[in-house]
Simulated scan of single mutants.
Amino acid sequence: MYQFFSLLRLNKPIGIFLLFWPCAWSLTMAQWFVVNNYLFIKYLILFFIGSIIMRSAGCVYNDIVDKKIDFRVQRTKKRLIASGKISVTTAWLSISFLIIPALIILFQFNNFSKILGLSSGLLIITYPFMKRITFWPQLFLGFTFNWGVLLGWSVFFENITLETIILYMTGVFWTLGYDTIYALQDKVDDLKIKVKSTAIKFRHDIKNFLFFCYISSITLLVALGFLTGRSFIYFILIAFAALHLAFQVIIIQKIKSNNKDKIQKVFNSNNSFGLLIFLIFFLEIYYG
């Protein structure tokens, strides 16, 4: 049973939350316009369950595609597929079982959302190959991991708006930053085996690159606030969120590249940022 949990990364839930928070932001922004408590709670639950399922399926699929690469990286060589403890056939069967409940959830939404949700499959399928062909797999992950922003809005309104795109790009830049931090753990091994990442591309100027990512994300949140007529409190709280991201950049500069545990802790702190943005949006519904 533990092996199954490990295969699905249920023993490391940070990825579930990083996938869920952009969905929750979008649902909360939609709730600000419609205030339908029943649908809001229903969709939050469905999207959280969906995040668990899709993140698990994505991890298994990535492990299948990256089997040979994972075996050559110190941090990942003991993963179940890379080490041969679980066969590729068993892994594909696990994905098949996970897809069924994911589709059950998706087909509870409107037709526009069904098409939008299914279209994310192309991003999910191609993402693991990006590290082989470009230094920007983290950017591609940003487009993939934040698709829930578009989907969350569409289940209410059956469209995509400028506000939704701004929020989507907020998540993309945020993911570009935090996944670059995550990739720092494997920088030495990736250089040896010629796997590409933004952590390698900007290894001589990582601080400025991370500041660029996070400043872009915060700037978009501020722009969204003006566009949707948010309260003064919203902008004050966004400033605190900005400090949270700035603190990450300052800390990561002081950590040695071989200290994977500390790098992981900085990466994990993005769960707090995702929760903070959700709470800011939520407070705006009733107190803004």
Rank of each mutant, 00 (worst) to 15 (best):
T180M: 11
I181W: 03
K201Y: 12
F202D: 12
T170F: 15
W174H: 07
K187G: 11
D189E: 04
D186Y: 07
Q185G: 11
Y168I: 12
L176W: 13
R203T: 07
Q185W: 01
Y168R: 12
K192H: 01
L210I: 06
F202L: 04
T170C: 15
F209D: 06
K207A: 10
V188D: 07
K196I: 09
Y214K: 09
C213T: 14
V188T: 14
C213S: 09
R203G: 02
H204Y: 14
Y178R: 07
Y178C: 06
L191T: 08
V172K: 10
W174F: 08
F173W: 08
Y168C: 11
Y168Q: 07
H204Q: 14
I206W: 03
T180K: 10
C213Y: 06
Y182A: 07
M169K: 13
D190M: 01
T175L: 07
F173T: 14
I181F: 09
F211A: 03
A183S: 08
K196P: 02
T198P: 15
T170N: 14
K194Y: 01
A183Q: 01
L191Q: 13
I206Q: 06
I181R: 10
C213D: 10
T198K: 05
L176N: 06
L210W: 04
H204V: 01
F202G: 05
D190V: 00
D205V: 03
I206M: 13
I200W: 03
V195A: 09
L210A: 02
I193Y: 01
F202V: 02
